[in-house]
Design a protein around this nucleic acid. Structure first.
Length: 846
RNA sequence: GGGCGGCUAGCUCAGCUGGGAGAGCGCCAGCUUGACAUGCUGGAGGUCGGGGGUUCGAAACCCUCGCCGCCCACCA
């Protein structure tokens, strides 16, 4: 067995073996209880980043844990076509080549996209394998594969037949770059420093009204002026008509509650064609809608000199002309939020467009009712509110996109104007039999298809065996930024189509930031490729780190040294195993179990500690506090099993002591099981090196029967041992004594077992009389302290203990404390005081 | 504008329902200790963001202020 743990060498073979033996493949016909995870399909826009690695580690931990606890587990992988995002990726590639998708043409563009899907899909799968994700590859899904496509079409048709899908012109968020509408959730708000212009609009019949705007170019499409009805400044103007400068259009002056009296001048220019609020005001007052913008964001004002200009260009020219006419009252610097397309970054232009809409009321209400009924549990709980608040304010969803990439809307029209909505493309018009039919050019919002993920991947709308066995799935774990975009929509459509929430538990994991606190991103150069970390520290180390931070209440800054720490942890496990394996005769010690005798204190102690660790690790997983699991496993392994137990039994192991072998073996065996979900590779490897004929660790049982080893008496006694050993080491160090040698004197109260073990661990000779020799040591005043070892550090320690004691005694002297605090707290405090007094006495002894 | 999270050792973070301030890394000192120098031993380092309050007792609960971050939102 190599002296050092080498992740590369260990990891290489296991994944292939697990997979070849079909350990990841779920059986819907199994008698076992089912546990299903539909892995959030990564966008097929590029390679997986740290966030994906973290998420994968969490999912796989749950999958492996559930397999070991007896469930039939389905861990279903896949990826998402991510229409708008992928289209942007390809367009950027084309731009670098000096081309555009229009030049390329639709067919070649599609071919290019498919090639990209193949390439990136393969990379993603490879990364997931490197991470050790125990996914059922026989069920790999893609949101654009033919079966999934059919699910999406079916959902559309069902919604349509319910009357929930309709087409209507409305103000939408228009991305001039993508030439598509996007939903409110895809708008990213960024702070802009702009200028607020105060512009004078003359009023017909005399007077004027001054409005404030940051977008003077939109005035070309103004069709009204609005003021608040309760604003005394403008009361007399309501009902009058303003004249639009530069254009001459007559603008009715209306009163509307939506106008803020305190903003600007309190008078608002109304541009129903290019502002959401103005649109609503316009609707209420029957104002005309004028469209002054082309779909590429340029001005569409035929007959005016601004026609065809870019918005900003037009703005400058308009401001110049208004100034020339002395219509600008003033300009103020103004900081505000401006919407951008979250995929391409272009400034969003609100404009009127005819779009496909999905009514959400009924689905929203069902989702709210499900939460009310406790069918959805959030971890941490606070995210439930984020979700519910958003749901309550939900409006109709714009599901149409004017992109090249995505699921085409299944709506067809014949030459006679009939409209057919069908899952499969009809060959002729169902009303007049006419041909040819043309399909609606729109595609669906990529989130429309993602919303079906938990059941479309299982075969819906067909009543498949998988759907029957594995729906609902059990847990969804994602970043909070897609709670509204994705999680909420899965819940709504899941309730609608399947009648049940798609998962009962939702865990929100943290976001990994770069070490300096910035966002991890490729473009900023702050991203880290998980594969680099895997090759440096191993997948196990990366996973252990990921699960240790995943459920953090705040986002975490990436700290590479922590990943490195977990690699060292793997090495520690490795070497602990090596030590045990080197015990003579151990190879043939096939049947553990003789430790039941448990005559040694250290054996009883470590089994008790193992039992506690198993409990803490299990509780952490069940309670979505994975960091507690990792910490318990780490602490047990390093600070208890290695630092104390193995040190205590080294000689016994060297002598081939069967009880020591059995106990050590039992600890390792259970520890590997307990760590397997977190660090699957190294644990599987070490497990395979233990003697005996072994099946895969991956499919052994989770330890659940260790409670019987809890042994408070042994823990207390061993605590005495540790205290003595630590005191001896401390004083040795302070007095410059060599690390070994010297004697320990046994006094009255100390059990022979404790003294003996302490002597062994501290490398002392145990003697039974006080007058023999000079050194040493200690515990609870039961062992005398030798003369001649007094030093400055000891004085300092005495001082510290004395001040601690003074504080505690003051507490005990407080009658309020004694009378009001619970008796056990008072008792405990008294015990601490006694212990401190004893320690001081001991240290002062000469 | 509303909501949420964070502020704990030099750094990255734990501290759950209030009762002795923790870990990893880093730092200092000492160790070729028959598993591991990816190691071992000892140690330094914190008025738990500031200020009030509740309590016998507060890092934890309440109020308030200050920064940092996120989400939501139709004030042009």
């Amino acid at each position: 067995m190599p002296k050092a743990f080498d992740p590369q060498a260990v990891e290489a073979g296991w994944y292939a073996r697990w997979e070849a033996d079909r350990l990841f493949v779920a059986d819907p016909a199994s008698d076992r209880e089912k546990f299903a995870l539909a892995f959030p399909p990564p966008n097929i826009t590029g390679e997986l980043h740290m966030g994906h690695a973290l998420q994968t580690a969490v999912y796989d931990l749950l999958a492996r844990y559930r397999r070991m606890t007896g469930y039939e587990v389905l861990f279903l992988p896949g990826y998402d076509h991510a229409a708008i995002a992928t289209q942007n990726v390809i367009e950027k590639q084309l731009a670098r080549e000096g081309a555009t998708k229009e030049e390329l043409g639709r067919e070649k563009f599609d071919a290019r996209v498919n090639a990209w899907y193949e390439q990136v899909g393969a990379t993603i799968i490879n990364q997931l394998r490197l991470l050790g994700a125990s996914m059922d590859w026989t069920r790999l899904r893609f949101t654009m594969d033919s079966r999934y496509y059919r699910s999406v079409m079916t959902a559309f048709v069902v919604f349509y037949e319910k009357g929930w899908i309709y087409r209507a012109p409305r103000i939408v968020n228009w991305c001039p770059h993508d030439r598509s509408a996007i939903s409110d959730l895809e708008v990213e708000w960024r702070e802009h420093q702009d200028t607020l212009y105060f512009i004078r609009y003359p009023v017909k019949g005399g007077g004027e009204v001054t409005i404030a705007t940051v977008r003077p170019e939109t005035m070309l499409a103004d069709t009204g002026v609005a003021v608040n009805p309760s604003d005394p400044r403008y009361r007399d103007l309501v009902g009058h008509t303003a004249i639009l400068p530069l254009v001459g259009r007559e603008l009715p002056i209306v009163a509307d509650e939506a106008v803020e009296k305190d903003f600007g001048t309190g008078a608002l220019k109304v541009t129903p064609g290019h502002d959401a609020l103005d649109y609503e005001i316009g609707q209420r007052h029957g104002l005309e809608i004028i469209d002054s913008m082309n779909l590429d964001g340029s001005m569409h004002v035929p007959g005016l000199p601004y026609d065809g200009m870019l918005a900003l260009e037009a703005r400058n020219k308009i401001v110049d002309e208004l100034k020339a006419q002395d219509l600008i009252v003033k300009e103020e610097p103004y900081v505000h939020q401006v919407g951008h397309c979250d995929r391409c970054g272009f400034v969003i232009e609100p404009l009127i467009s005819e779009q496909w809409w999905l009514r959400m009321e009924e689905m929203r209400d069902k989702a709210l009712a499900a939460s009310q009924a406790g069918e959805v549990r959030w971890h941490p709980e606070r995210y439930e509110r984020t979700y519910l608040d958003w749901l309550r304010g939900l409006r109709d969803w714009n599901i149409g996109r004017q992109l090249w990439l995505g699921h085409r809307v299944p709506v067809y029209r014949c030459e006679n104007g009939h409209q057919i909505v069908a899952v499969d493309p009809p060959s002729e018009c169902s009303e007049c039999g006419g041909t040819p039919l043309t399909q609606d050019p729109d595609v669906l919002d990529t989130w429309f298809s993602s919303a079906l993920w938990p059941y479309a991947t299982l075969g819906w709308p067909d009543e498949t065996e998988d759907l029957e066995a594995f729906y609902p799935t059990d847990i969804n774990c994602t970043a909070r930024e897609i709670i509204n975009l994705w999680v909420s929509r899965m819940i709504m459509t899941g309730l609608e189509f399947m009648g049940e929430v798609p998962f009962a538990d939702i865990a929100i994991h943290c976001i990994v930031q770069a070490a300096d606190g910035r966002r991890m991103s490729k473009s900023l150069g702050t991203g880290i490729d998980p594969r680099d970390l895997i090759s440096k520290y191993g997948a196990d180390a990366l996973r252990a780190w990921a699960t240790s931070v995943a459920m953090s209440s705040q986002d975490v800054r990436f700290d590479e040294s922590r990943v490195e720490g977990y690699r060292r942890f793997c090495n520690k496990l490795w070497n602990a195993t090596r030590l045990v394996l080197s015990s003579p005769g151990y190879e043939t010690a096939a049947t553990p179990g003789t430790f039941e005798a448990r005559e040694h204190l250290e054996d009883r102690w470590i089994l008790s500690r193992l039992s506690a660790a198993a409990r803490d690790i299990t509780d952490g997983i069940e309670g979505f506090t994975f960091q507690d699991s990792i910490n318990a496993a780490y602490g047990f392994t390093w600070n208890e099993f290695c630092d104390w137990y193995l040190e205590a039994v080294k000689e016994r192991l060297r002598d081939g002591d069967v009880a020591a072998q059995d106990v050590a073996h039992f600890c390792l065996d259970n520890l590997f099981r307990l760590l397997h979900p977190f660090m699957p590779f190294v644990t599987e490897e070490l497990w395979s090196r233990l003697p005996g004929d072994r099946d895969y660790l991956m499919r052994t049982e989770w330890p659940t029967q260790l409670g019987r080893f809890l042994d408070p008496g042994a823990e207390e006694e061993f605590q005495d041992v540790m205290t003595i050993v630590e005191e001896v080491r401390g004083h040795r160090q302070n007095s410059g004594a060599p690390p070994r040698g010297g004697q320990i004197h046994l006094e009255g109260g100390v059990s022979h077992t404790v003294a003996n073990l302490a002597a062994r661990l501290a490398h002392l000779e145990l003697v039974h009389t006080l007058d023999k020799g000079t050194p040493l040591a200690a515990a609870d005043g039961k062992v005398s302290f030798p003369a001649g070892a007094r030093d400055a550090k000891r004085d300092k320690e005495i001082k510290k203990l004395e001040s601690d004691l003074a504080r505690i005694q003051a507490k005990l002297a407080n009658s309020n404390f004694v009378s009001k605090a619970p008796q056990e707290v008072v008792d405990e405090t008294q015990q601490r005081a006694d212990a401190l007094e004893a320690a001081i006495t001991r240290l002062k002894l000469e």
